[in-house]
Each structure stands twice: as C-alpha cells, then as structure tokens.
C-alpha cells in the first residue's frame, strides 16, 4: 500500500512554495504588525515592546484619512469599472479577433512606462496649462482639477483601467453569444438583453477587476501624493508618514491593522453580495 502516501507527498511538495510564501511573506509580517500595534513608540521613534490599546484608541486621529480612502476608493473603483466595461465590451464583442490582441496590448501598454512618469504627465495634463488651459481658451476660466479629489479619481481610472479591463474582457469573451440571440429571440430589445444577460454574466469579471482595483486603491499613496498634491490624504499617506517620517511604528501598525480589517470585511461583504445576487458563482467557475 505504498501508492496512497505518494500522491499526498507530491501534493505537499507542489503546494510547498505557495505555502511557504504565504506563511513567511504574508502571515508572519501580519503577525509582526499585529504585535507592534500593541507596543509603544520609542523616544527617538520606532518600537518598544509593551501592551497598550492606546494606538487603537488614537485611530480617530486619522479619521479623515480613513474617510477619504473609504469614499474615494469605492468611487474610484466604480468609475474605473464604468470606463472599463465599454472598453472590454468593445474588445470582446465588437472587435475582430485579429485586432483584439493588438488592442488588448494597447490597453496594457501604459504599464510599460514608469508609473511616476505617467503621473507627472497627468500633473501637466490636469495642471493649468493642460485641460484647464484649453477650457480657458474656450471661455471656461478658473477650472481647477489638479490637487483635487477629482484629479485623484481621474488618475485612478487611468492607472487602474489596465487591471479592470482584462477580467471583464475575459468574462465577456467567455459569454456564449447564443445567449444573446436567445434573449433577442424571446423578445428582449438590445438594451434589455444587455441588462438582463450580458451584464449579469459579466459580473464575475467586474467583481474580480473591482476587487483588484479596490484593494490597490485602498492602499495607494503615490496617486494621492502626486495628483492630490498632498491635499488628498489617504490612509496610505498616513502610513508612509507614520512609518518613515514620524516613525511612530506602533500607531502605524494599528492603522495598518485597521486598514487590513476594513479591506477584509469590505471584500467579504462585496463578494457575498455580488456572487449571491448574480447567481453566477457556478457559471463563473465553469
């Protein structure tokens, strides 16, 4: 009976890299962060072991950062999805297979240049010689975009489209075109077919893309720093300051734990909601 342990061993070996990765690069650091969050800031900055809940009680001091992040991240995700869907739809449904690859590459192309360079470009596009300057020549003066939440949202849509388009594209591409014909055959107008068939069946892709974007946006600090000009303050910015500037590691750890907890709960609720509502859990897997 030497045959049964062997597949188990093989399975264990195959899972080992991912498992080790998970334990050492995710769980272990999280444990350290949790530990630090109960400590105290050393006089010169850093961490001294202690057990206090003070850091958690101080969380309201970053209330504005939490508020900004928890409003702008979902809104930015929604906007990105709204822009990505038509693009993905066009690619998956309206484009000939030959063009599809080329256009998909174009969608991804911005990822090939430095993120900083792209944000600098946007600083100029949204700055007063960019779009506001154009608008001024049309007689619409004093439009302010850069260093406002809108600039951050524009940057989010631009920056995260390449992450949102592919999952939606895949779910639309997988979508059986005969279902659309069946819907039309049963009397549904094109708009109703879109709302009743295309959209629900693409929801798993939208959910996947939204999760990716939402998680990245929740933790982002470069985007608010560059396009928000330090006037749009995210939790990520608060964390950078706490860890690298004021070096209040325990408080930073507490803010991190709160961020991770909020993300976890949000994602859980969202996935439950989307998947149960659309009833596509099974369809998404098939």
């Amino acid at each position: 009976m030497t045959t049964t342990p062997r597949p188990k061993l093989v399975t264990a070996l195959l899972l080992a890299p991912a498992g080790l990765f998970f334990v050492f690069l995710l769980l272990a650091p999280l444990a350290v962060v949790l530990l630090f969050s109960f400590g105290e800031r050393a006089p010169a900055g850093g961490y001294v072991p202690a057990f206090t809940l003070q850091n958690y009680m101080d969380l309201p001091a970053r209330g504005k950062a939490f508020f900004n992040t928890l409003t702008l991240a979902p809104f930015g995700t929604l906007l990105t999805a709204l822009f990505a869907f038509p693009m993905a739809y066009f690619l998956a449904v309206k484009t000939s297979p030959g063009w599809r690859v080329a256009l998909l590459i174009l969608v991804m192309a911005p990822f090939w240049t430095s993120q900083l360079l792209r944000y600098y470009a946007w600083m100029m596009i949204l700055g007063n010689k960019g779009i506001p300057g154009w608008l001024a020549t049309l007689g619409i003066a004093d439009v302010r975009i850069i260093n406002t939440p809108w600039a951050v949202l524009i940057g989010a849509v631009y920056g995260f489209l390449p992450l949102m388009v592919p999952p939606i594209y895949v779910s639309l591409e997988k979508l059986d075109k005969r279902l659309l014909e069946a819907s039309a055959d049963l009397g549904a107008t094109p708009i109703r077919t879109f709302l009743q068939v295309t959209l629900p069946l693409a929801l798993p892709g939208v959910a996947t893309g939204s999760m990716l974007v939402f998680i990245l946006l929740m933790g982002d600090y470069i985007l608010p720093q560059f396009l928000g000009g330090g006037k749009v303050f995210f939790i990520g910015n608060a964390l950078v300051d706490l860890f690298l500037q004021s070096r209040n590691w325990p408080f930073g750890a507490a803010v991190s734990v709160a961020l991770v907890a909020i993300m976890f709960v949000t994602i859980y609720v969202y996935m439950r909601f989307v998947l149960s509502k659309s009833g596509t859990r099974r369809a998404a897997l098939v």
């Binding site: 800031r41 900055g45 001091a61 504005k64 900004n68 303050f233 300051d241 706490l242 500037q245 209040n248």
Partner: peptide, 17 residues
C-alpha cells in the same frame, strides 16, 4: 524636532485637514 511626537502629529493633522 526629529523625534518630537507633537510636531509629527501636527503635521499629520495639517496634511489631512
């Protein structure tokens, strides 16, 4: 100023204001 927590928190409040 490098280690003073009050200045650090002041800065944080200013930035998130």
């Amino acid at each position: 100023t490098l280690t003073n927590p009050d200045r650090a928190e002041l800065m944080a409040r200013f930035k998130s204001a």
